[in-house]
Amino acid sequence: MLKIENLQVKLEEEDKQILKGLSLTVPSGEVHAIMGPNGSGKSTMSYVLSGKGGYEVTGGSATLDGVDLLAMEPEERAAAGLFLAFQYPVEIPGVGNMTFLRTAVNSQRKSRGEDEMSAAEFLKVIRAKAKSLKIDAEMLKRPVNVGFSGGEKKRNEILQMAMLEPKMCVLDETDSGLDVDAMKLVAEGVNALRDGKRSFLVITHYQRLLDHIKPDVVHIMADGRIIKSGGPELALEVENNGYADLLAEVA
């Protein structure tokens, strides 16, 4: 269970408050979506949860199954089960996708005190998972995200998610820049990982992703906090009416 309470975050470099008392709980097994106008702090939330530099937490807390996420290094948060699917996955020239993933899987296992996955076992698992995501074996050999199309990059994120088997997946606008078919494929990948225990926090601008990944709860975020939560119908409301009415409600 991810529990964010009254989280307050400002930029490290300038005195600009971005999250202003964000509270949010995602119980295990549930899929929550976050929607909100540009600049409301959605991506900041995902970065702060995963430990990216440049932000200063000035108050509040964030825990995953009771463990304080904010006190840990980014890699420790990952090993604790937090996964972030990036909006813009970076390229790492010269590092094979497979080498990268195996290093990641084994680093996490090691820090959890588990046995490393053997090369043979890893190969077997990744091939099976890649196949189910319609990822070409060729893509596994290419350097991480180098020369990947937008769709390939996002699919690669989902593949990493599938291999790392996190408890809590944060998807930061995974649908941005994808055509309908690619989006469907990504959504199928996510759905395949829903197992009743794993939780998802899906950040998106568009309701259409939520047609494919059915959320249990939809939150609307504005100006650094959640202003309204509800069922999937909330997403439809936003789709039809925009945010103006909701913003007016809380104003």
Binding site: E75, R77, F83, F86, I92, P93, A104, S111, Q160
Partner: peptide, 23 residues
Amino acid sequence: FYCRQRGIDEEAALALIVNGFAK
């Protein structure tokens, strides 16, 4: 950060990136 988010610590991440560069 991308490497670290996947669970690879900073020094290992750097080694990975540099080894990629020098591949």
